[in-house]
């Protein structure tokens, strides 16, 4: 569960963006399927089987909903299956709906896995590279939000026990919520003054600020980034040369299967499956080591 965690924070976003870029702008069922497969596997390695099973309960209806609503609104295509309210429901529209649904699911599953991998620490680090002030602000907000939530709970409980909510009517509850919020604003300002004092006491605002992180850029990271660049280059060149062009309308075109298109599929497949493979490889290695002990 931790091979991905050990990578430098720049590696995963590169993979994530590369896959998303290709999956969202290329309408080719093979690409969509590969992206979905990679996303699903990745999610599974990060979130575990149990959570993925729960997730499927949401994904499958979503898939059906999208695949079936498209033909209701789109009547393009040359192969009508039947007519509904005088409108043709075409094979092309259903297929296109299904393809779009595949793409959306792929993006969703990648997003979920990515969200799990990119902890706040990593996000703050990435932001810090671009804008150190922004990174500090992000870090401070992440610290502040749970504090605010706790304070809100404390205030509303204290007020309740002090007998301040006269009835349980809707308006009364609304009013008391408003009171809590206005008190929270005052508390936040007070807190901000105290924090800024603590920051000044520790030299905040001096010239020549450095930034520290727990991350190291290792050989593996360089290797993975280079690999991503090569694979993405192959895919983009292939796309540029029209090797994976595919059309749903007016008629579903034949799936391209030239040598170049197979190369693009392979390259994209590698890109999409690599993160899961790293994670699975790690788990297999662990089991192997454990069996040796």
């Amino acid at each position: 569960m931790n091979a991905i965690d050990r990578l430098h924070p720049t590696v995963m976003p590169v993979y994530f963006l590369a896959i998303l870029l290709v999956a969202m702008f290329v309408s080719n069922p093979v690409i969509s399927l590969l992206a979905l497969l990679g996303g699903f596997l990745f999610c599974m390695t990060q979130c575990g089987l149990r959570e993925m099973r729960a997730e499927l309960k949401f994904y499958i209806p979503l898939f059906l909903l999208m695949a079936l609503t498209n033909p209701l609104f789109s009547h393009n295509g040359v192969t009508p299956l039947f007519f509904m309210n005088g409108n043709a429901v075409t094979l092309e529209a259903i297929t296109y709906g299904a393809a779009i649904a595949l793409m959306v699911l792929a993006v969703l599953s990648w997003g979920k896995g990515f969200g799990r991998v990119m902890t706040s620490d990593k996000l703050v680090y990435l932001f810090g590279k671009a804008a150190p002030q922004l990174a500090l602000m992000l870090s401070m907000s992440l610290r502040y939000i749970p504090m605010l939530r706790r304070q809100a709970k404390q205030i509303s409980r204290a007020q309740k026990v002090a007998g301040m909510y006269s009835t349980e009517s809707y308006f009364d509850r609304l009013r008391s919520t408003f009171r809590v919020i206005s008190a929270l604003i005052g508390w936040s300002l007070e807190q901000a003054v105290e924090t800024s004092r603590a920051m000044r006491a520790r030299g905040y605002g001096l010239k020549g600020h450095t930034s520290y992180s727990n991350y190291h850029f290792r050989r593996t990271d360089a290797l993975l980034l280079t690999l991503a660049a090569i694979l993405l280059a192959v895919v983009l060149v292939g796309i540029g040369m029209g090797a994976v062009d595919f059309a749903y309308y007016p008629a579903i075109s034949a799936l391209p299967h030239t040598a170049l298109s197979v190369a693009v599929y392979t390259a994209f497949g590698c890109l999409s499956l690599l993160p899961s493979c790293i994670e699975l490889g790690e788990q297999i290695r662990w089991n192997y080591y454990r069996s040796k002990i």
Binding site: V124, S139, R143, T195, R202, G203, Y204, T210, Y212
Partner: peptide
Amino acid sequence: QIVTDKVWHELAFGLENLG
């Protein structure tokens, strides 16, 4: 007095400011 969200960052905060 705690400024950042993570323990390690809090430890490093003063030193970052000092450059």
